[in-house]
Lab assay of single mutants.
Amino acid sequence: PQVPQCKALYAYDAQDTDELSFNANDIIDIIKEDPSGWWTGRLRGKQGLFPNNYVTKI
């Protein structure tokens, strides 16, 4: 099955070790969508939390 993905609308710099940094237009694999607004994703071999208001699902 296809892994859900999202595209970064803005760059995000991780504020903690469990967060994921990314650049605008990066494509992130979505591991888990949480109602809190912090999703778990994977990018370039690293997994971490990121704010879903920085991305749009594709």
Rank of each mutant, 00 (worst) to 15 (best):
P1C: 05
Q2M: 15
Q2E: 09
Q2R: 06
V3I: 10
Q5A: 08
Q5T: 14
Q5V: 12
C6H: 01
C6G: 14
C6L: 01
K7Q: 07
K7M: 11
A8L: 01
A8I: 00
A8V: 03
A8P: 02
L9W: 03
Y10W: 11
A11D: 15
A11W: 06
A11M: 10
D13R: 09
D13V: 10
D13I: 12
D13P: 05
Q15H: 07
D16N: 13
T17S: 12
D18E: 15
E19K: 10
E19P: 01
E19D: 04
L20P: 00
L20G: 00
L20Q: 00
L20M: 08
S21H: 00
S21G: 05
F22G: 00
F22I: 05
A24F: 11
A24P: 15
N25G: 13
N25M: 10
N25F: 06
N25L: 08
N25H: 09
D26C: 00
D26E: 14
I27C: 07
I27D: 03
I28T: 05
D29W: 06
D29G: 04
I30S: 00
I31F: 04
I31E: 07
I31C: 12
E33G: 00
E33P: 02
D34S: 11
D34M: 06
D34V: 06
D34K: 04
D34P: 10
P35Q: 14
P35V: 12
S36C: 07
G37I: 04
G37T: 05
W38L: 08
W38R: 15
W39D: 02
W39C: 06
W39N: 05
W39H: 02
T40L: 13
T40E: 08
G41Y: 01
R42V: 12
R42Q: 13
R42G: 11
L43Q: 03
L43H: 15
L43P: 00
R44C: 10
R44A: 12
G45R: 06
G45E: 13
G45K: 15
K46G: 05
K46V: 13
K46M: 15
K46A: 12
K46N: 13
Q47N: 04
Q47C: 08
G48T: 01
G48N: 03
L49M: 06
L49Q: 10
L49D: 06
L49N: 05
F50E: 01
P51F: 06
P51Q: 04
P51Y: 05
N52K: 07
N52R: 11
N52H: 12
N53A: 10
N53D: 14
N53R: 14
N53W: 10
V55S: 02
V55E: 00
T56F: 14
T56V: 12
T56S: 13
K57G: 05
K57S: 06
K57T: 05
K57P: 08
K57M: 06
K57C: 04
